[in-house]
Nucleic acid binder design. Structure first.
Lengths: 328, 328
DNA sequence: CTTGTGTCTTGACATCTGTCATTGCCTGTT
DNA sequence: AACAGGCAATGACAGATGTCAAGACACAAG
């Protein structure tokens, strides 16, 4: 009767000065439900409250992530399509989620990507973050099972004024915030008007330091953009329509972290490319763990180019896209 | 309709040579249920099977630990009783589970201890394991969320022929087996007949090496035994009734890893103690992370002695025991 | 003292989930 | 070809869970 849970409610007036963050009842219910496998009714009887209250307590436990459900990426790597993708593109890992409505795909991939990334992050890591709708979806949904220490999240390409809702700064700071890591935003525009200015800017001590961090990145998270009419690159503002058209003339089929590549994944250089501030594709390949999250029927060619050139070590996609990639 | 799941069932006869470990359906259901939060009926409709089948798939996913539910030890450390215990005994962490029937206590504590230990183990760790009913319960229920590499589990005290169901070897090998770690059993009896023999044995290269491992242990798991009539120490065979009585005369109230301590946690030496093979209490204190799992109304004094002397850094118990410890 | 406002709790209902005996299919055997 | 044995899939039922509107309570303002 007069058990710990009851005591927790009011918590004797003697030393109830602490932030009263002490809802022991939540833990109590959590343990009995998830560890001891009692039913909600049994727990309700024990705590002398209604079952509905237990439902609420358990909901709170899930919201506050006192309990969390982990889905093994290893197991997903043993899926037929995942195996085939790993084979075909020489990946270290692949994670293929069921396909649903194309509309919610970005969010669902974000969830999957978040789980894959969360699983990898360790104490002391430096994590590079690109930008884009998909990357934002990952940032939005990531949460680490256990707290990590001394993790740094670093923005790997400059900031553009044009990107509306999924800017590089937002992706980086949101992700770092959600995992309680240090956040390093790249204090430079994505594209400068002249190479000279870019060179001068990169010579600045602040930026030098930031680029050192970028080059020492342990893991990097990025998406893949296509070149279609409604593609991210066309609304992001990192390149004008004319500039994009020039790239396309030179065979561009995809954009990774702001850089354009052709069918074989070869970087397409040029003046505009030289004026961009951010990690280069050669530098990208130096990163140990490169997590690419991408999907959607319009992106097949773009993703194929990305994966064939070995830009990713880990790839997250949905079934439909995965099968499309395999049938090429 | 003709989606991936359907294809997985028979898997085109062309390349179905692999071990057919490919139950994609399990992953498919797992993801839709746990990540996308669809109901079982919705998933059943998608896969064109009955809902009962989905239930089975999900059950398999849980059994094969494709999904696992994690309960945050941090959150449990914020419980009122846990905080008080940490305060009173200067612990780094405390985990207090709800009290249930005294009969199932050992198993429930084992579950809790397993979660606490599992949370701590990292790549490259050496984990010391004592023995006892409670330690066995931990070993029996532990499972790591993600695979770890290069972990060694080492038995920290000699083997006794008398221990029936919870021998040191069993505890060690079971635990190491469950987490897929290297297992090092201590190849020596728990007690030798003379100090000389013990000295000679310890001079053996094999044992020297094993003791080096014991001294480099990162974490150690142990229980607390009391001295009562039906206590573990009296059935374990590590000491005769007369020897135990001698210890008791000298003020023994508890046994940790085979060593006897008094009310203040001071080791009680003597001839028998000198003849024992295993980690000493001084050496125990050198270990960074020392996880003690213990509970039960008969053990209050024993646990108090253990904790007050600082033998543990992390303590796992149940509510009733926790409150008893605080009221002393 | 009354009223208002927000939070927490509850009971009843609709839905979702687990169980289990039964069915149907495949495989290997006679 | 017929048959038995093993195994996964199924439908129907009992029980567990989530939802929601209504109620209880505490506290602040009038």
């Amino acid at each position: 009767m007069a058990n710990g849970a009851a005591a927790a409610k009011t918590g004797g007036s003697s030393e109830a000065k602490l932030p009263t963050e002490f809802d022991d009842a939540v833990m109590w219910a959590t343990w009995l439900y998830y560890a001891d496998q009692l039913t909600q009714s049994e727990i309700a009887k024990q705590l002398n409250v209604s079952r509905a209250t237990i439902v609420n307590l358990l909901q709170e436990a899930r919201e506050r992530e006192i309990v969390s459900i982990r889905i093994s990426p290893q197991a997903f790597g043993r899926t037929a399509v995942a195996r085939a993708l790993m084979d075909k593109f020489g990946l270290d890992g692949a994670f293929v989620i069921p396909s649903g409505e194309e509309q919610s795909l970005v969010d669902r991939l974000g969830d999957a990507g978040a789980r894959v990334l969360a699983e990898q992050i360790e104490d002391g890591d430096t994590v590079g973050v690109a930008w884009g709708r998909t990357v934002l979806a990952v940032a939005n949904q990531i949460s680490l099972p256990r707290p990590v220490r001394n993790v740094t999240v670093v923005q790997v390409s400059g900031s553009s004024t044009g990107e509306p809702e999924f800017s590089a700064e937002l992706c980086t700071s949101l992700l770092s915030n959600r995992i309680h890591a240090r956040c390093v935003n790249l204090l430079a525009p994505a594209v400068l008007s002249t190479r000279e200015l870019k060179a001068m800017l990169l010579a600045e001590p602040v930026l030098k330091k930031q680029f050192e961090l970028i080059h020492s990145t342990d893991r990097i998270l990025f998406g893949v953009g296509d070149i279609g009419a409604r593609s991210t690159v066309r609304v992001s503002g990192i390149a004008s329509k004319a500039e994009i058209d020039t790239y396309v003339e030179q065979g561009a089929v995809a954009v990774i972290i702001g850089r354009f590549i052709d069918t074989h994944g070869r970087p397409i250089g040029g003046d505009h490319d030289d004026r961009m501030v951010g990690i280069t594709l050669d530098e990208l390949k130096q990163v140990k763990s490169r997590i690419c999250v991408a999907g959607g029927s319009t992106k097949t060619a773009a993703i194929t180019a990305t994966l064939e050139a070995g830009y990713a070590t880990h790839f997250v996609t949905d079934m439909a896209t995965g099968e499309a990639l395999l049938s090429v």
